[in-house]
Structures are given as C-alpha cells and as structure tokens.
Amino acid sequence: MQALATAALAAGAWLGHAVTEAQEPLLTQALNVMLGWGGLDPVFLVTPAAVGGGILLGALLGGTLVYADIHGRGPPALALLALLPFLLSWLSLIDRLPVAPATLHALANYGWLGLPLLCGVPGIWRGNLPAIALGALLLLVQPLTLEGNDVAALLPILGFIFCFLLYIELAYDQLRYERLARIMHHSTEFEAVLNWFGVMLLLTLACTTALTAAAFGFHEVLGEVLPARFRNSIEFNTIYGRALSAMTFFALWAIAQTIFSRQFLARQVE
C-alpha cells in the first residue's frame, strides 16, 4: 500500500508538470523573480529532465528522512536538510565551494521540483498526516500556471487526477488500517478486512470515474433542457458554465439521496 502510494505520488508529480509542459508555473516564476531581486540568476526551470531529476532527488531525500526517523534522528536530519540550501548558497557566494555553480543551480532546481516527494514520502512511510497533506498541496499548486489548461491536455489531466486520488487514499487509509491492525493483532480477520478495502477502493474509483464523466457530461444535458437564451449565452459555454453544471448535478444528487434515504422514507411512513 505504501509503495503504491509513493509510486502514485511520483507519477502525480510527473503528470502535474506534463499538463502544463509549455508554460512556466506561477510559483517557479515567483521564485525566479525573488532571486532577481537579490541580484541572482534565475535558476528554477521546469523541463521534463528537471522534473525527473526532482522526483528522484525528492524520493532520495524523503527516503533519507524516513531512515533517520526510524533510527530516532528525524528532527536533526530535518534541520540539516532545511539548513543545507542556505549553507550551500553561502559557500557558493563566497567562492569556497569546489563545485561548479551550474551543478548547484541544478540541485536547487531538483530540490524545488522534488519538494512534494520530500514531504509526501515521510508522510506515507512514517504515518504523518500533516506531511501527507503538505505533499498533496504541493503536488497540486506547484505546476499551476496563469494561462490555465483545457481538453487539449485531457489525458495527462485524467492521469494526474487518478494518481492524486490514489496517493491521498492509499496514504491516509494506510494510517487508518495501521490503527486497525493494532486493534486486531489477536484477530485473523484483518486480512479479510484489508482485501475488502482493496477491492472496494478499485470498485469505487471505477464508479467515481463514471460519475465524474456523468457530472462533466451533465453540461450537455442541461444545454438540451435549458431555454435557448441560457444555452447560447457566453457564460454557459465557457468553463464557468461547466462548473455550474457540475454543481447543479451534485446538488440534484444530494436532493435525490436525501429523498430516497431510509430515514427520510421512514419519517414519511410515520
């Protein structure tokens, strides 16, 4: 479960940047601008090779943190890791480091791009919920661009969403099932419960895909149902219209579920 979550995180980081391959992400631009204020060269650059390097470096450093934490040296290792970029920058600025600046710049770039894994991997393997959440947040916001994206990048988008959900679900449920395993240490039922979880996760992901497609396609249904002046309006035919259609779909879903729920029906019978 943990290995699968780590793989999903790495794939998510890759696909997140693949969605916006031709554009410079907002946060990367912001970092370069800040370096420019200090009179330094812009070193952060998103390329497929840099993303790959970042994923590998993030996984390596995250794994090191996990190893240090297992041996009770988590906080010092984390402090060292946090101070290392500043130390290297300082040594580089005063020309005391026998490493070429280009190598250091590439390392800094990899470190930045590997940040989701640096947070997520310890979260997954050491059962740390805030680290998992931080990893997910970075995974989501790091590749954000100002220009946005559309159906042209549909496949990477769907892949990213699948990986994102898989990472969050497996990492969080690993935490919960670890607790269950502690409770059930005397029981032989744990394997059965775990198998049930795996099967149900796959089934619900498949159903979610279908429901997402239905919610996304609901826009077309609304287009058929609504009067022409709504259907032909500019707002309805942009992403705003799609968003509102999706919200309408889920509002209708909630109403239907409430009406057909057992408690509601029972109250009507009473």
Binding site: N149, D150, I161, L165, T208, A215, F216, A246
Partner: peptide, 13 residues
C-alpha cells in the same frame, strides 16, 4: 480544467 475535473472527481468520490 485540471482543477475543475479534480473538484468534480472529489465530489463524485
């Protein structure tokens, strides 16, 4: 669109 679809997926989930 990426965030929109992710939002819809989360709601669907």
């Amino acid at each position: 669109l990426q965030l929109l679809l992710l939002g819809i997926t989360l709601l669907g989930f």
